[in-house]
């Protein structure tokens, strides 16, 4: 929506995230450069969602730090499965939630804000859905709606958790176009993905995660067969009698 934007990157400094005593993300260091478009891939239980939630400030690091370079205006696309899709709310009201960072709890939305929300609905192909209850939408339409909310939010960093899961091919293609636009506008995008062909085609950078960062860099270098195999082995190595980690914090 706006042309040039302030660069916003995220640096991970020896980051460890845990669920109880079990490490979900283990001593990861690296950088999501300002304006980068990064895919996070890895086997199930590799800590991808936990990492994304930590980047959004929803999960406190057990060790290490998450450092923001530039602004920390973050837009999060939660997993579709985590949403109560029967919630009694109209589509336009969901899109208007994207105005929260500007309006907060009390300020009134202007006619211009409303128009922006309508335009965002149109941009994701949901014109005319303003008064429709969310419960009447298909999975793909709901994902389109959540993208419209991100459009309105106009954040510098976009964190997408499995954005193309459970949606039809056309929706995935439409939403991918939005992701490309965001990248073109200089926003920093981090997306958790499973479709490796898609990653190879569309994402310049990749983080292969399996608790530890197996590889992090240009997709061609990171997404090798060897690294993918290594990630799978790491995820399957689940030792109940593992000793406490003594790597320097």
């Amino acid at each position: 929506m706006t042309g040039r934007r302030a660069p916003a990157g995220i640096r991970l400094d020896n980051l460890t995230l845990t669920h109880g005593a079990r490490a979900a993300v283990h001593h990861v260091s690296g950088r999501f450069a300002p304006g980068s478009l990064t895919a996070v891939v890895g086997p199930n239980g590799a800590g991808k969602t936990t990492l994304l939630r930590a980047l959004a400030g929803l999960h406190k690091p057990q060790g290490g730090a998450i450092l923001h370079e530039g602004t920390a205006r973050i837009g999060l696309l939660p997993q579709l499965a985590a949403l109560d899709r029967a919630f009694p709310i109209a589509c336009l009201d969901v899109v208007m939630q994207g105005l929260w960072p500007r309006l907060g709890a009390f300020r009134a939305a202007s006619a211009e804000d409303r128009e922006r929300a309508r335009q965002a609905l149109a941009a994701v192909g949901l014109s005319g859905f303003e008064r429709r209850p969310v419960g009447s939408l298909s999975a793909g339409q709901t994902q389109r709606l959540l993208f419209a909310r991100l459009l309105v939010q106009d954040a510098d960093i976009l964190l997408l958790d499995e954005p193309f899961n459970a949606v039809d091919a056309r929706t995935a293609a439409d939403l991918l176009r939005l992701v490309r636009d965001w990248h073109g506008e200089g926003r920093t995008v981090v997306a958790v993905l499973h479709d490796l062909d898609l990653v190879t085609r569309e994402f310049p950078d990749t983080l292969v995660l399996a608790r530890d960062a197996i590889a992090w860099g240009p997709t061609a270098d990171a997404l090798t067969a060897a690294n993918r195999m290594k990630a799978r082995m790491m995820a399957e190595a689940w030792a109940d009698d593992a000793a406490a980690c003594d790597r320097a914090a």
Partner: peptide
Amino acid sequence: VLECFDPSFAAAAG
């Protein structure tokens, strides 16, 4: 309403 509908988005948006 926001917190009820989507607590993760709400927290990330501040």
